[in-house]
Amino acid sequence: MNHDEHEWQAQETALRALRDGSAGGDAGYRRVIAALRDAPAPMLPAGFAAVVARHAEAQAAADRRFERQLAIGLGIAFAVGAIVALAVFGRLGGAAAAGQWSGSLHWLFAAAVCVGVTALMPKPRASGSAQTL
């Protein structure tokens, strides 16, 4: 056993002795480890947990609001785009337009499916409020 390994064992022996409440081990390491195990008590204000929980819930609610607004905004943009597309292609008329329409309808259908699937996907966090106080 080299010197460092021997000293590591001395440190660990002092730690075990302190944990067990038994005598033994290097006196210097016992004092060092006793000091390390004696940390000052947390200086957090009373009610810290309640305040943090309220902040966290408020933040989560704000995030949910933002997501909802974003979804509504995207929905509106999608609807406007669809109306513009209908207006543009609607003016064309005739057989050629009918051909383009059938292609556009495929895309519109695919987009509607995407929106539907996204809406049906499970949310990572329950949307119900967990207001604690």
Partner: peptide
């Protein structure tokens, strides 16, 4: 907490605030 049960997150904070304080304070 994930189910949004009332008081759950506050309980979590209360249980681990000492640990958090020790890590951050050190």
């Amino acid at each position: 907490v994930l189910a949004g049960r009332a008081g759950a997150f506050e309980r979590l904070v209360r249980e681990y605030q000492g640990l958090c304080w020790h890590v951050v304070q050190r």
